[in-house]
Amino acid sequence: MTGVHFLEDLSAHLAEISAIILFGIGITLLMLSRNMIKKNIGFSMTDSAIYLFLAAKGYISGRKAPIVVDGIEQMAYYINPIPAGLVLTGIVVSVASSAVLLALTVRLYRQYHTLDIDEITSLAQKEEEV
């Protein structure tokens, strides 16, 4: 019986569960990968995971976007538009952040000819000693 309940729970919250798993993968990449590009991919994954969570929580199946075209004004007919607005704003913010990190990656690559952050750090240290 509990197995069935568990499966029901799982399917009802599929989007949220996958969002959290994606978030975990993204954070791991961001923290543990030494490659700057992979770090950036990790960051994009964490943020997308959060937006997936927000969008999944903000949508109620069967309801519509709150644009009144057929004269129905009951609240129960529409969904709250704010989560979608937050997702849009958030996407803009994370695009800007990844753009800045990518720009820094390009400059680092031109200077040190590698994407490995540990290698760059040791190269920079050697440069300073000289």
Partner: peptide, 30 residues
């Protein structure tokens, strides 16, 4: 100097921080 490297490391740590903060914010809103 090594400012670009410093800035990249700063960004990485801050991205981690803001992801966690944003997730908390979304949970709270939820």
């Amino acid at each position: 100097g090594r400012t670009v490297l410093a800035s990249a490391r700063y960004m990485i740590m801050n991205m981690l921080g803001s992801s966690l903060f944003l997730l908390g914010l979304v949970f709270l809103y939820d």
